[in-house]
Design a binder for these strands. Structure first.
Lengths: 147, 147
DNA sequence: TTGCAACCGGTACCCGGGTACAGGCTTACC
DNA sequence: GGTAAGCCTGTACCCGGGTACCGGTTGCAA
């Protein structure tokens, strides 16, 4: 046995086989070896790479960021490795923390809305006295991208 | 003056004029009155509606949900109003809270990764001993939609 | 009355992350 | 050597939330 077929890799990593080709196009997976007939033959570690990709995605990295991360890891190799990864991880952590803070504010607003027992969205959003959820954020604060 | 032109409404609400037509198509804004020539003339409260929509979006409601919310508010009117809105708000709050919990876990993982000072993504994801971020979530937990 | 900005409807495109389908070849097993 | 499953490439489509472009009117002021 000289490699895994795409469906084996896909099943082992819990992704759709089409996703493998998609990742290859996106530069996340290197183009694997082929059989004489042109079928892809993946090395076993591809499964680990896929799991890493999925993990990183769950941590909030986009596919482009993951591709970049993998690239860095590959090119700058073992010596002076680290740098990029640590820096990016720190940045991502800051990001995630900001998102949490934002969501907390949102949760607070929703809770206030429930407490206030407001009835009608439109009137609510307009009346200045009401601690309404839908108006609370009316001026400014358009900054967030609540992914 | 008998109403606001689309650009005025858009500017006042801080949205793109095209967005007004889009919302009309999506059922978020009622079709407004027109001039003889066919140009839209919005009533002043449209601005409040738009601000409400933007607020609701920021709270995590999708446009469909907002449309629904507005609809409910309009149709069941003042009497027995509430019901839908409160219920949905509660549901949304639960949602937001779940998202926060999830992000906290993610932040924890990222922090662990930094502490552990891990070097290489791929190796990391593979080694079972490492408290690595990219592997930590490898089995299961595919449940989240970290919007 | 002329000129230009703003508007109209319709359609196409953007982002990110995939998934689906069509039509043809390869591989594996009996 | 037959036949079915699996793979190949290429292209189109999905989601949500808009944005951009087109060619053709309208509105308004000088």
């Amino acid at each position: 046995m000289s490699g895994l077929r795409s469906s084996q890799v896909a099943a082992a990593a819990g992704v759709n086989p089409q996703t493998l080709r998609y990742y290859e196009r996106r530069g996340l997976l290197a183009a694997p070896r082929r059989t004489l007939g042109g079928h892809r033959l993946y090395p076993a570690e591809t499964v680990a790479v896929l799991r890493m990709i999925k993990g990183a995605q769950r941590l909030g990295f986009t596919l482009d960021e993951v591709a970049d991360l993998l690239d860095t890891a590959r090119h700058q190799g073992r010596r002076r490795a680290d740098a990029g990864l640590r820096t990016r991880t720190r940045a991502k952590l800051a990001d995630v923390e900001a998102r949490i803070a934002d969501l907390r504010e949102i949760a607070g607003t929703l809770r206030a809305a429930l407490d206030a027992g407001c009835d009608d969205l439109v009137t609510c959003a307009d009346s200045p006295g009401c601690p309404i959820p839908f108006a609370g954020l009316r001026e400014g604060t358009p900054h967030v991208d609540p992914r």
